[in-house]
Lab assay of single mutants.
Amino acid sequence: QETIEVEDEEEARRVAKELRKKGYEVKIERRGNKWHVHRT
C-alpha cells in the first residue's frame, strides 16, 4: 500500500483519477488540513 499526501481535495481527486486509470484501487482520506490518497 502506498500513500500520497497532497494539499487539497482537488489534487487528491486528480491523483486518484490518474491511479484509477492505471488500474489501481484508491481511497481518499482527509487528515486535518492534508489529504491522503491510499493506493490499495
Rank of each mutant, 00 (worst) to 15 (best):
E25L: 07
I4R: 05
Y24H: 13
Y24P: 04
V37I: 02
V15D: 01
E10H: 09
R13H: 14
G32M: 06
R31C: 05
I28T: 09
V15A: 08
E10S: 12
E5Q: 14
R13V: 03
W35K: 00
I4L: 04
V6W: 14
N33A: 14
V6I: 10
E29A: 06
E11M: 13
A12M: 06
I28N: 03
H38N: 07
R14Q: 08
E11N: 00
Y24L: 08
I4G: 01
R13K: 06
E5M: 14
Y24V: 09
E18W: 03
E9V: 14
H38P: 02
V26R: 01
E18C: 06
K22D: 05
E18R: 06
R13S: 05
G23M: 07
R13P: 00
H36A: 13
I4N: 08
R30I: 03
K21D: 15
V15C: 13
N33W: 04
H36K: 11
E10F: 12
V26F: 00
E18P: 03
V6D: 00
E29C: 07
H38K: 09
V6Y: 05
E9Y: 12
D8K: 13
H38M: 11
V37A: 03
L19V: 04
Q1A: 02
E18M: 08
R13E: 02
K22V: 07
N33K: 13
R31W: 07
K21F: 13
E25K: 06
G32T: 02
R39S: 09
G23E: 07
R39L: 04
E11L: 10
R20V: 08
E11T: 15
R20A: 09
K34I: 03
E5L: 09
D8V: 15
R20K: 04
E11P: 11
K27M: 09
G23A: 09
L19E: 10
D8F: 12
E9A: 13
A12R: 00
K27R: 12
G32E: 08
R14T: 02
E9M: 15
G32F: 01
E11W: 11
Y24W: 09
R30D: 06
T3R: 14
K34Q: 03
V26H: 01
K21N: 09
G23W: 03
K22C: 05
V37R: 00
V15H: 11
K27W: 05
G23Q: 05
A16R: 04
E29H: 04
E7T: 15
W35P: 00
A12Y: 02
R39K: 04
I4Y: 10
E2V: 12
E9I: 14
K27Q: 12
V15N: 02
I28E: 09
A16V: 04
E9Q: 13
I4K: 14
I4V: 02
G32Q: 12
R13N: 05
H36F: 02
V26D: 00
V6N: 09
E7M: 14
E10N: 13
H36W: 08
T3I: 14
R30A: 12
R39G: 13
K22H: 04
V15K: 05
T3P: 12
H38Q: 15
E10T: 14
K17H: 11
